[in-house]
Amino acid sequence: MSALLEVKDLKVAYGSILAVKDVSLTVNEGEIVTLIGSNGAGKSTTLRTISGLLKPKGGTITFQGQRIDGKEGHEIVAMGLCQSPEGRRIFPRMSVRENLDLGAFLRNDKEAIEADRERVLDLFPRLRERYEQKGGTMSGGEQQMLAVARAMMGAPKLLLLDEPSMGLAPVLVDMIFETIIKIREQGITILLIEQNAAAALDVADRAYVLESGRIKMSGNASDLAKDDAVTKAYLGG
């Protein structure tokens, strides 16, 4: 296995406040890696920086052997790194169809796009029912499905998922995590951010624990799930 994404000594600041102080992590091809941590630990900031929405203050980000820190967001998407962002951020005044179209904005391969469209609609049958409905009028769960589906329309090699279970009913949370496993089965590597640490450690191969901007622990997800410190802090044990 080779490293698909490698983040080294990443530092990100908002103004003069360092939100991410020291983050190093690796995602290998075919893995599900999760980054867990409490609110404000710097998880979303890390993901936003990987996607090029924020510029790092220090450190490097390498994707498929190429430095991507300093590249613009659209260039990073073009390399096959797509994100379903925190808070879903679907286009509220556009239909499900138009949202999915935008997910494939940079692609020209018409037939492959249609195939992917069928694939994500099979993955989320609910979106097929809501196909012509405006994104902003759908329920939170449906919007979340749309956000993930839209990111998959970019034919990603690496899919970043930022809190896909946030604010969802328990039934939907289970459904989202099952879908994450199905997505991996389709050959997409996943970096997952979660506050729901138990569920995240359950689906992930490896995990990193982020605490106030620093990686505190890392290892196999199943090992971390048994770790006392992790259990105490994040699994409510």
Binding site: G73, A78, R89, P92
Partner: peptide, 11 residues
């Protein structure tokens, strides 16, 4: 509608 989301679409 959403600048950051547009960026994440590759726009």
């Amino acid at each position: 509608q959403d600048q950051d989301a547009a960026r994440l679409m590759g726009i």
